[in-house]
């Protein structure tokens, strides 16, 4: 009987601890998402400044450098320091432009964080955000990892489509087209970033 009680207490503590971890991550995510939405909803903010604010928030919360390195892998290893550094900066801006552009479409919609769970095995939080659109609801899942007492968003999943996976596939395809030359990829990345930036600020 005592063993059973011990077992129940143990399970209870584990469940409570996982749930607290998930809830802490949710609170953090809500704050960061709200920062971006507030930037969108402020009519007095010039578009350039609005994007800079959003870019800063995204750069603080996404492990842009790590994602960039993992996506380019071999080409990154083979490149020189200057090319690597340019690539990281361009990739971070690319990521910010992608997320800002996605969130721009939902900036006037209400949302709610509906579920959060902690994957003990991979040490990843999954946080579901329900966005209320005119024609129904949409679920966006955020994958959040804690590293050195900081949270990082490592992926966004919309309708089963992972942003990380899509970017990885896209960059692999482009790298093949430029013979895995990171410097050439940077040129392409600079062009698309410039065009995306003009669209987002105009």
């Amino acid at each position: 009987m005592i063993n059973l009680i011990r077992f129940i207490v143990f399970i209870f503590i584990i469940t409570l601890s996982l749930s607290l971890k998930a809830s802490e991550a949710s609170n953090w995510l809500k704050q960061e998402v709200d920062k971006i939405l507030i930037a969108y909803q402020n009519p007095n903010l010039p578009n350039e400044n609005r994007f800079l604010l959003i870019e800063q928030t995204i750069n603080n919360n996404f492990p842009g450098k790590s994602i960039a390195i993992n996506i380019a892998k071999q080409s990154y290893k083979n490149a020189n320091d200057e090319t690597r550094s340019n690539y990281i900066n361009l990739f971070k801006r690319h990521l910010a432009l992608n997320i800002a552009s996605l969130m721009q479409g939902y900036s006037n919609q209400k949302y709610k964080l509906t579920d959060s769970r902690y994957d003990e095995k991979n040490k990843v939080n999954y946080i579901d955000m329900e966005i209320y659109l005119d024609t129904g609801e949409m679920i966006v899942t955020w994958r959040v990892l804690k590293h050195k007492e900081r949270y990082f968003v490592i992926d966004l999943i919309i309708s089963g489509i992972s942003l990380y996976e899509t970017k990885r596939s896209e960059f692999n395809s482009m790298l093949k087209n430029v013979d895995n030359d990171l410097a050439k990829l940077n040129e392409e990345l600079r062009k698309i970033n410039e065009s995306s930036y003009q669209k987002i600020i105009n």
Partner: peptide
């Protein structure tokens, strides 16, 4: 069930 990004964030 979507594959987890196989990234290490040690670079941050």
């Amino acid at each position: 069930l979507t594959p987890l990004p196989l990234i290490s964030i040690e670079f941050e």
